[in-house]
Design a protein around this nucleic acid. Structure first.
Lengths: 342, 342
DNA sequence: ATAATTTGTGAAAACGTTTGCACAAATAAA
DNA sequence: TTTATTTGTGCAAACGTTTTCACAAATTAT
């Protein structure tokens, strides 16, 4: 009933463990003949090496750990899809964990992954992360770490990100060019790298079009829109402003959905009264009322790139010389939610 | 640099490995005093047992394997979220793989998980699965298997499913009661358990309202709507029918999105010309044009239940007597896509 | 011919745990 | 007091690999 072992092959073929082991890895001085005999027999009895034993011996698990804030967030689930596809291709097991935006969870999950001796780590930080120190140690002790999406300024390492600044610049510019003057920005926690970068692009576009930046038009949802109340508060405050905005740029899927829902409930016409557009990896922006102008991030691609980079780092013999930073382009798709009929 | 080991504790405290090991597991005759001393020191030096060594020795990995068809499908990503939440709670690592609806992938992924000696398996089969034999073996060899969502008639084991039949019955009934007579059903591969059950509920409702069942009104998308073309073909064929349908009930998120997109493109008004409703775990059905009547499955809950059951099976000493089948209720939410103004 | 090298294989240690068994010390029963 | 039992600890084997070292046989160089 129990699985086949090296010993089974060895005794069946009258060889020693060592010879069998070496024959299967064909990296040593084993005669062509023996090698083939061993491999044929291993195939025949469907030998599968015991991975626990291999890990114990080799200190390698052929697995990578992933930390995201939330698996079921559509952006992250696409990223995970990409990571898994590379894991499958390169024969690495992917271990997925989520922080749920809690720094305590994040730290525990990270420790957990490390104690499972994953060969590398793929991390998208939570907004108030305090696990950077642990990551530094991990990195130093030889387990490579690649950040994606949400990175940390406190720890210089390999990174794969979307061009957040460029994306929000393009989107803001699009709004400005279509005659919107008072553009609000509802974004997530101000500590997040992505929020900072998106704000930057927004400011850059405003400056270019000589529209003064107005602090009051920027609202933060500290929970990234997990709670609709925080978006509600943001929208309400915007509507109460003396000169309330004629467009809202949102920074995430959830915030986008919340904002639209709220405006619908208040019977505020989009885009006639207020235009809406945002960062989104929504699966169907075209069937929203109204079809939504979006900045789409290459999430699947990001997962693939990050996983490929990580595995490259894992498998490179020498410690890699320089940190790589890969920036992926975003895509602006204009739909009706930002186009007023004349 | 390297992690701390049992030996470190043992030599620091002048004890043997065995005593330290037993003290940490407090399941043997170790004096209160020694136990505390060991634990305190272990805490102090942040001792983390080597999991590879433990697995090798115990034949347990404290991990469970999951197979879904696609991580980024919103239904599955919610399920995964649920599974992960229980895994975290019970301290099991979750290893997620996807079949991408390919039986070959499915089999490979399954073998992979098994060779990693996961303690149990959580499986949602792909439509033309041929890995049931392997699962049977696995089950017999003592690794429990729990099916969720898409189950197999060929293998009797533990199951967690939504009430697909009841759900589609309710939805069909809702349509019938709102005056729709010719209700089409666009569903996925006819081999899938969920498709079979949903068709059944549909037929049951029709029969109850004395509407004859019409084979021509049922269309299958073999790839579950991954390719928009297959939905396009289905819709086209329906529209070409002598008496084309006045309502369409869709069986999955992707098919729903595709159908709505296609009808929009053809300028066919929903629900005035054709009503649309479907099974969906879309994150925002309320902001679709028009707001979508849906049957929502308790995906997160399903993941939790399945994971809890599996872990219970893993940790129960005796082989469990009977197979459990948990059926979760679905929720019908009526919105404008099925309500005609009078 | 002998010496040096190459080639193929095996013995055994190591990776870090857990656990059956043995055994001494302390306690309880006779 | 002697014997039986309980209590606390240590030794050593086992889990299934990989790999260093050793060594015999075959080949090549001298």
């Amino acid at each position: 009933m129990s699985a086949t072992k090296l010993k089974d092959i060895a005794s069946a073929l009258g060889l020693s463990y060592s010879t069998v082991s070496r024959a299967l890895k064909d990296n040593y001085r084993i005669s062509e003949e023996t090698r083939n005999r061993v491999k044929a027999y291993a195939d025949k009895i469907k030998y599968k090496p015991n991975l626990a034993a291999q890990s114990l011996r080799n200190n390698r698990t052929r697995s990578i750990g992933v930390l995201v804030s939330n698996i079921s967030n559509s952006f992250f689930s696409e990223v995970l899809d990409g990571i898994e596809s590379i894991g499958y291709e390169k024969n690495y097991q992917v271990m997925i964990t989520q922080s749920l935006e809690s720094p305590e969870n994040e730290l525990k999950q990270m420790e957990n992954l490390i104690s499972r001796s994953v060969d590398g780590l793929l991390v998208s930080l939570c907004s108030t992360s305090n696990s950077v120190e642990l990551l530094k140690e991990t990195h130093l002790s030889g387990t490579p770490v690649v950040f994606f999406d949400r990175i940390s300024a406190l720890f210089e390492t390999h990174k794969v990100v979307a061009d957040n600044c460029g994306g929000s610049y393009n989107l803001t510019k699009h709004l400005l060019e279509n005659g919107y003057k008072k553009i609000a920005h509802i974004t997530s926690s101000p500590e997040l790298s992505i929020a900072i970068e998106r704000l930057e692009g927004y400011k850059k576009a405003l400056a270019e079009y000589n529209v003064p930046f107005d602090e009051e038009l920027v609202k933060h949802c500290l929970h990234g829109g997990m709670l609709i109340e925080e978006t509600e508060k943001a929208v309400d405050e915007l509507l109460k402003l003396e000169k309330s905005p004629d467009a809202i740029m949102t920074a995430s899927d959830r915030i986008t959905i919340n904002t639209i829902t709220i405006l619908h409930n208040k019977n505020i016409a989009i885009p006639e009264k207020i235009a809406v557009a945002g960062f989104s990896n929504f699966s169907a922006p075209q069937i929203i009322a109204p079809p939504l102008t979006t900045i789409r991030q290459p999430a699947f691609e990001m997962g693939k790139m990050a996983a490929e980079l990580l595995i490259r780092l894992i498998e490179s013999k020498k410690p890699v010389d320089a940190f790589e930073k890969i920036i992926l382009e975003t895509e602006l798709v204009v739909r009706k939610s930002t186009i007023r009929k004349r």
